[in-house]
Design a protein around this nucleic acid. Structure first.
Lengths: 197, 197
DNA sequence: GTCTATAATATGATAGAC
DNA sequence: GTCTATCATATTATAGAC
């Protein structure tokens, strides 16, 4: 496996992805040109096509990787017994995961409409699956008499929106630590479904 | 004030705004061309510039109008005495207002990053003012002993995110009426801040 | 693996005819 | 008030040199 002079395939690929993620998050997919991405990486525009089939693939791969990471991390959650502990753990997990990668979260949500139909379907399906995980917890809590909600589906959507909303205002250099934020939001999530803590 | 044949200034202006709003919501500001908007309206691209200074003004005017309408509607809310009733009324107002104009809400949030700096500042200031109205309610509720929250600012952000989240899934032809949704969400909002209903 | 050059096309905005 | 034509520029993506 001889390496040619000037070859950087192991490093350039990830740098392109990082630059694209940052630029897409800041200006939006449609507003960012391949030349901007190339400039950020320090290569010419043509070189990008050695690492991605086209601009759309670049976006899709970023969103797909984000969702893959989300599920991978979710599987690491230690199992707990009662629904209240489950919801508490999920809330804390969701906040920790999302707060740590604001750009990816932003792109995953904001750029859905810029995905071509079949790519959109794939990402939507993954998002649906993730929400179903939370809905399961809510439903089990209701069945066990631990939660009081008028509608499990609506409660699930309300919880997801509330928890993900942290990303709109949280700053690492703000007045609160990630831990404090997670504590407070987990409590509000529990309250929202009428759980006693 | 003679009117020339073929003059439609009274009707074309609003139609341009409507078309732009729909297209911006569906595809994003950066992805929509002036020619697309013109085609939707049924005029040539050049004619758009009789009604808007440029593409950026078109976006800003849409967002500004949306925020103006929001405040106008908020002022119509009948005053109530206790903080619990105030929060209940605000939650119902917020959902009703946002659920009725999904495109404007979507654009107002998603296209913030495509506003030029001074336009961005103006819209952000209005958004901040709206959030402050809710924060006031939360704070008064805490002082009155009606709510139990760890932090008023975080509770406010959590409530706004939860309530606005309705727009991500609500469809007029769905299984629930707007009234049912408002009832359920208002209840969850009250729960979240530990209010007894 | 990266560059330069370029094809093919789209863009925002304006000028001038009607 | 609207249209056609156009300017000046930017876009994605590819071909071929090194």
């Amino acid at each position: 496996m001889a390496r040619k002079t000037g070859s950087h395939s192991k490093i350039t690929g990830p740098r392109i992805r990082t630059a694209a993620l940052t630029l897409f998050a800041r200006h939006g997919y449609a507003a960012v040109s391949m030349r901007q991405i190339a400039k950020e990486v320090g290569v010419q525009a043509g070189a990008l096509y050695l690492y991605t089939q086209d601009k759309q693939s670049l976006l899709f791969d970023l969103m797909k990787s984000h969702m893959d990471e989300l599920f991978e991390a979710l599987e690491q959650l230690p199992p707990v017994d009662d629904p209240s502990s489950e919801l508490d753990a999920f809330a804390r997990f969701h906040i920790a995961f999302h707060i740590e990668r604001p750009e990816a979260v932003f792109v995953a949500y904001m750029e859905l409409r810029n995905l071509e139909p079949e790519n959109f379907t794939k990402i939507e399906e993954m998002r649906r699956r993730y929400e179903a995980r939370l809905e399961d917890i809510v439903k089990r809590g209701v069945e066990a008499g631990a939660f009081t909600v008028a509608d499990s589906k609506l409660a699930t959507m309300a919880l997801i929106a509330m928890l993900t909303g942290v990303n709109t205002w949280y700053r690492a250099d703000g007045r609160m630590s990630q831990q404090e934020v997670a504590d407070i939001y987990a409590q509000m999530a529990m309250n929202a479904v009428g759980a006693s803590v």
